[in-house]
Simulated scan of single mutants.
Amino acid sequence: MSDDERIDALRPRYRADLAAGVGRFFAPRRADCPWCGSDRLATRLRTTDLLQHKPGRFTLDRCGACGHVFQNPRLSEAGLEFYYRDFYDGLGEKKLGNTFGGRTAMYRARAEALLPYDPAPKSWLDVGTGHGHFCAAAREVLPGTVFDGLDLTEGAELAERAGRVERGYRGGFPELAGELAGRYDVVSMFHCLEHSTDPGRELRAAREVVRPGGHLLIEVPDPQSRYARLLGRWWLPWLQPQHLHLVPVGNLRERLAALGFTVVAEQHRQAHDPVDLLAAVWLALDHIAPREDAPWLERRPGHVRRAVRAGLLLAGVPFLVAATVLDRLAARTVVGPLGLSNAYRLVARRDG
């Protein structure tokens, strides 16, 4: 089946989903911070879905007491299903699989972050594993470690069938924590905590699964990055509507300490992914250009609209190239000193 035929086959379902509008995709708006309970909230960002271009408008609020940034109102269960559909699996499976599969150096660096604290863990659970590409790369750094993966999507099962993980668990981490309690020397949560409806619950699950003396590795977008202010809605790590919570590093350190973890390493520059300017240029170009076909559109774009889109994107190539060069130059020189890192990484030891 061709891509056009697959999209046309999905169009009736999306049309039915959107028939009554997008209101049911949102939970009631909160009046307090989900992290600390303060009512000192202010709007941080309003935006649309800049990646899939599904209908809807999204708001991020910031807590004036603790700095926590969160989607408000956040997606309901129906909204999570609707906006995730065809992103990591379905229509998006091949594209995202190719993207994640080509980041071996970054995955190796994540695994190497543990080496000063445990050079030979026996067992490792990667939460939010996607298609398991991190585990496949990390095995080269830690050949004696058994890697398992956990994910809400069928990616965990795909990772097991592909041999990237020994065991792939499909489901929510808190729901599976009892079954996995005390089983792992290491639990990693790379860019998954921000997707959770309740980050505190995810952290409690991690404490249950990591053995005493074992380690928890967390990497998340940094809402305090200067790029977040400079690039506004075009900063990729906002990733609306998927990112529900963006936690300042001080907040996460305090919560981990309260759960009985000791943070042994905090990394900013090492966790930076040098794509901010490139992504901002691409998001802006893609926003300006006519939409490419998608099943949530009423009908397939005509030849003229497709030609206009192709022309605009072709004209933007020099800007994309320049942004790529500047991203790499900044990563080598000023990301650390200027506080531009778009992410941070914590390594925490579970106390005995």
Rank of each mutant, 00 (worst) to 15 (best):
I7D: 08
D8Q: 11
A9S: 14
L10R: 15
Y14E: 01
Y14N: 03
A16K: 11
D17A: 13
L18G: 04
A19S: 15
A19Q: 13
R24N: 05
P28K: 01
A31Q: 14
D32G: 02
C36H: 11
D39I: 00
D39V: 03
T43W: 06
L50Q: 12
K54I: 02
L60Q: 10
L60G: 07
C63D: 08
G64P: 05
G67C: 09
Q71A: 14
R74W: 02
E77G: 12
L80C: 06
L80D: 12
Y83G: 05
Y84E: 09
R85G: 02
F87N: 10
R103C: 01
R108A: 15
R108T: 05
D118W: 01
P119G: 09
T129P: 09
G130Y: 02
H133A: 11
R139H: 15
R139P: 03
E140P: 01
V141S: 04
G144T: 02
G144L: 03
L150Q: 03
E154R: 11
A156D: 03
A156C: 05
E160D: 06
G168D: 07
Y169A: 01
R170M: 05
G172L: 11
G172M: 04
G182M: 07
R183W: 04
S188Y: 01
S196E: 15
T197M: 12
T197C: 05
R201Q: 12
R204Y: 07
E208L: 11
R211G: 09
R226D: 09
W234Y: 14
V247S: 11
V247L: 12
P248Q: 03
P248E: 08
E254I: 00
L259N: 10
T262Y: 06
V264W: 10
Q267V: 00
H272A: 06
D273A: 13
V281F: 12
L283V: 00
L283D: 06
A284S: 10
L285K: 02
D286I: 00
A289P: 05
P290Y: 08
A294H: 07
V304L: 15
R305Y: 07
A307Y: 06
L313S: 05
A322P: 05
R332H: 12
P337W: 05
L338H: 07
L346F: 08
R349H: 06
